Simulated scan of single mutants.
Amino acid sequence: MADTARRSQPRYGNRPTMKDVAARAGVGLKTVSRVVNGEPGVTPDTERRVQEAIDALGFRRNDSARVLRKGSTASVGLVLEDLADPFYGPLARAVEEVARAHGALLINGSSAEDPSREQELVLALCARRVDGLIVIPAGHDHRYLEPEIAAGVATVFVDRPAGRINADAVLSDSYGGARSGTAHLIAHGHRRIGFIGDHPMIHTASERLRGFRTAMADAGLDIHDDWVSLGTTEAQRVEEAVVAMLGAPDPVTAIFAGNNRVTVTVVRMLAAHEPPVALIGFDDLELADLLKPGLTVVAQDATTLGRTAAERLFSRLDGAADAPSRVVLPTRLIPRGSGEIRPPAWE
């Protein structure tokens, strides 16, 4: 009896093995493996005894051995633009929830809008043998991923499409959202509308500018060069753009802000401006409804973006072999007051 008790104790200090669990539960090694991996073929009573042994010994599955045996790590990588950006919080959370439902660990990192950093992160994740990747691209050439995809690393791009390769992508309708937001300003009497956006080489920025230009053209309105400003979203650059637009010989009476970081700076700049300037921002902001007036936005559904991308990824990991697809999710105009300010009576 004492000898049996000794044999059922962990043999490697505090690192019990499946053999230890099997000895303590009085079952075979294959039975323990089935319980640990959630496989069928084990009676409820046996599963209970194995689980009690696992709990008593503090056993944890050796995923390194699992990688060597099956070539799968049960992990996926997520490469974001900026973890600090509030837009990416719900997106990342949605990806994590889908991954967890599939028994996978999520590993993420930020590219800081740097293509070389993006490539470095992606290849580092591949070197750690993640099963799949979800990427918000910073670069425009993703051919470096072709060997990884050919080797079986499922890859889905989100928010922006891949560059120079054919891959699954899940996007928001940036063009349609900006077009409807601009049309909303025009419907409220504005004819001189400024657009302040991100770098033009970023897919979402160029699509939102295209939507703005289309809405203005649809209304037969010209766009002066000094009504459009693209570049970094740093506060100083955006402030300078607002000052230039409001100080021009024909000042704008409304501004369309191309993303949430731009919007925050524009809100501060317009807070005390007279006469009031109408404003619509692309992306919703926390507490936007508490501003005076409330902030009108074109809202993306970041949660649905993340969930849709993750579900597509796990569909690929489960064996889906259809051609890469592009899913475009609709945006939603939310009027709260700032986009409904009409131009001065003399305009």
Results as ranks from 00 to 15, higher is better:
Ala2Trp: 09
Ser8Pro: 06
Gly13His: 00
Pro16Arg: 08
Gly26Thr: 02
Gly28His: 05
Thr31Glu: 01
Glu39Asn: 09
Pro40Ala: 01
Gly41Ile: 01
Val42Cys: 03
Pro44Ala: 10
Asp45Glu: 15
Thr46Phe: 09
Thr46Asn: 01
Glu47Pro: 06
Arg48Ile: 09
Glu52Met: 10
Phe59Met: 02
Arg61His: 02
Ser64Gln: 04
Ala65Lys: 00
Ala65Met: 00
Arg66Lys: 14
Arg69Trp: 00
Ser75Arg: 01
Gly77Ser: 07
Val79Pro: 03
Glu81Met: 13
Ala84Lys: 11
Pro86Glu: 06
Glu96Asn: 14
Glu97Trp: 07
Ala99Met: 13
Arg100Tyr: 08
Glu113Leu: 09
Glu113Ile: 07
Pro115Glu: 10
Glu118Phe: 10
Gln119His: 14
Glu120Leu: 12
Ala127Asp: 15
Asp131Phe: 13
Gly132Lys: 11
Val135Asn: 05
Pro137Arg: 08
Pro137Lys: 03
Arg143Ile: 03
Pro147Gln: 05
Ile149Tyr: 02
Ala150Trp: 07
Ala151Phe: 07
Ala154Gly: 12
Thr155Met: 06
Val158Leu: 06
Pro161His: 07
Ala162Trp: 08
Arg164Glu: 15
Asn166Leu: 11
Ala167Pro: 13
Ala167Gln: 07
Asp168Ser: 12
Asp168Thr: 13
Ala169Lys: 12
Val170Met: 07
Val170Phe: 08
Gly176Arg: 09
Thr182His: 08
Ile186Glu: 05
His188Asn: 14
Arg191Thr: 15
Arg192Pro: 00
Ile193His: 00
Phe195Tyr: 12
Met201Asn: 13
Ile202Trp: 05
Ile202Val: 15
Phe212Val: 08
Arg213Asp: 07
Ala217Trp: 05
Asp218Lys: 12
Asp218Tyr: 03
Leu221Pro: 09
Asp222Met: 11
Arg237Gly: 13
Glu240Thr: 14
Ala241Met: 11
Val242His: 04
Met245Val: 10
Ala248Ser: 03
Asp250Ser: 06
Thr253Arg: 04
Ala254Leu: 05
Gly258Lys: 03
Asn259Leu: 05
Asn259Val: 00
Val262Cys: 02
His273Asn: 13
His273Gln: 11
Val277Pro: 03
Val277Met: 07
Ile280Gly: 04
Gly281Trp: 06
Asp283His: 04
Asp283Pro: 01
Asp283Gln: 05
Glu286Leu: 14
Leu291Thr: 15
Lys292His: 11
Leu295Ile: 06
Thr296Lys: 08
Gln300His: 12
Asp301Cys: 02
Ala302Asp: 02
Thr303Val: 12
Thr304Gln: 15
Arg307Val: 10
Ala310Glu: 02
Glu311Asp: 13
Phe314His: 01
Phe314Asn: 03
Asp318Gln: 06
Asp322His: 11
Ser325Leu: 12
Val327Gln: 09
Val328Tyr: 02
Val328Thr: 15
Leu329Cys: 11
Ile334Ser: 03
Gly337Ala: 10
Gly339Met: 05
Glu340Ile: 04
Arg342Ser: 10
Pro343Asn: 06
Ala345Lys: 05
Glu347Ala: 13
